[in-house]
Amino acid sequence: MIKAVFPHKDLLGIRNLGRDEIVMILDTAESFKEVSRRPIKKVPSLRGQTVINLFYEPSTRTRTSFEIAAKRLSADAVNISASTSSVVKGETLADTVRNLQAMAPDIVVMRHACAGAAEYVAGIIAAGVVNAGDGAHEHPTQALLDLLTMRQHCGRLEGLRLAIIGDIAHSRVARSNLWACRTLGIHARVCGPPSMMPRDLADFGEVEVCSRPEDAIATADVIMMLRLQLERQGTGLFPSLEEYARRYGLNRERLARAPADAVVMHPGPMNRGVEIAGDVADGRRAVILDQVENGVAVRMAILYLLGGSRS
């Protein structure tokens, strides 16, 4: 494979990536998909390199995806979760990552509940930092795997129509995707309960806000349903799960209002019967398992590009 040059030490967000950089990552990921389909799913690209997965929030899914990606590149992958590390003893984030730095990792993959945490860590340590989700700020590898899936099913990105439905205000997935839309010329429509809609989306450029999901999906090529965090029940943000499901959930009747070739995505894990009906999630329009497969490929691409850029 021709080694592309990725001009960043870290992957902190989509906001500051250029179009060419995004396309480079997607093209690199495309080539790694082939690796994952081989009987021996391993290439030596990152042999001898150490990838630390530092997760301050539980996320089996994303962590596993990164771990598999690292291993398929022959890197040594170490998992540190908040419950087993010293973070519980009141050590600051800076202390923890300086300790990690002393162990000379090549890449730190990081999940944290605070917006800006990955960027903060990236400023402290020499290792490359991959943001695996920082609060409601960004989740760049999720957006990249979403883009790879969209490109796979729609054949292009520019000019596509994307509808994102759900809790936009608290969603890092929505934010990273909206930055990608701005950079790549994807038309974005968002829809969700008004209590879960940011007050002012002007920074994201031309985003259309729809109050009814039917309007958001009417011309969509891609429908992205966001996970409703169930712990938000009882906070007054929405009346009830039933009301949420009725008004914003994607069921068969509602999906029928979308163009016949629109695909349905979900970042997982799903709340079946809340934001997405079971039969839609399992239906032929859903490309949710493709997203999971593409997730490994995208994360391989990122680790490869960041690891490669320093060796």
Partner: peptide, 15 residues
């Protein structure tokens, strides 16, 4: 502050 910057940074806003 709750506004366009908090919206784009994903930080909880104070209206």
């Amino acid at each position: 502050h709750e506004g366009r910057v908090s919206a784009s940074l994903g930080l909880p806003g104070i209206p």
